[in-house]
């Protein structure tokens, strides 16, 4: 069976000496390009798509590929010629039955990890996926800690001997000063608003 497949694909497939690639057990009518794809990412792992499903999935996969000649746009969104070609290639590969990860890996072979708009999970990339989650946990821990601490200090007895609510300093805005002094005069009966015990002006 293997040698039969080899004979059939022999004219189309290229097996360079340096690469001990496996001969994919692919459909016999693969074009040169898709057989190259199969050599790189393995045989198609999924069902060939067509019609509306194909359109929808093409857009979906295209949205994960970066248009190499644009600034940050995805292949699905970009009108550039290169992006249109890439979109066509994505469509052909989906129609041949390759799945999303295979297609992304194929483009990554030519263009590098740069072409994937969503960082794949490898190496230090884990940090960008889990960083926000760790941030959430750390932040939540801090907030809960702050709330616990605040709530527990409420239980403490107020300082003995302090009958005045709040600090006894004058406000920063000089305009408010006469009002505060007048209020203290009216409320506490302090002449001129000055506390009889403390020497604050």
């Amino acid at each position: 069976m293997r040698s039969m497949a080899r004979l059939l694909l022999g004219a189309l497939l290229l097996v360079p000496a340096g690469v001990a690639g496996q001969t994919p057990e692919a459909l016999p009518l693969l074009s040169t390009e898709t057989s190259d794809v199969a050599r790189v990412v393995g045989p198609p792992r999924s069902q060939p798509l067509s019609g509306m499903a194909l359109d929808a999935k093409t857009y979906q996969v295209g949205a994960l590929l970066r248009c190499p000649v644009c600034q940050g746009l995805s292949v699905s969104d970009s009108p550039a010629g290169m992006a249109q070609n890439m979109k066509g290639q994505v469509r052909d590969l989906l129609a041949a039955g390759f799945d999303q990860e295979q297609i992304l890996a194929y483009f990554e072979r030519s263009y590098g990890e740069f072409v994937r708009l969503q960082p794949p999970l490898r190496g230090v990339n884990w940090l960008v996926w889990f960083g926000p989650l760790l941030g959430l946990l750390a932040g939540a821990a801090i907030v809960i800690g702050v709330l616990r601490k605040r709530a527990s200090t409420v239980a403490l007895e107020p300082e003995p001997g302090s009958e005045l609510p709040g600090p006894d300093t004058l406000p920063d805005d000089p305009e408010l000063r006469p009002y505060l002094l007048r209020v203290r005069e009216l409320a506490y009966g302090w002449p001129g608003g000055a506390s009889p015990e403390k020497e604050k002006a």
């Binding site: 390009e33 190259d36 190499p68 000649v69 010629g81 290169m82 070609n85 890439m86 066509g88 290639q89 052909d92 483009f107 072979r109 030519s110 263009y111 590098g112």
Partner: peptide, 12 residues
């Protein structure tokens, strides 16, 4: 369809 350009990773 630019397939070979894509395969080689051509930017321009």
């Amino acid at each position: 369809g630019g397939k070979i350009a894509i395969a080689y990773g051509v930017y321009g």
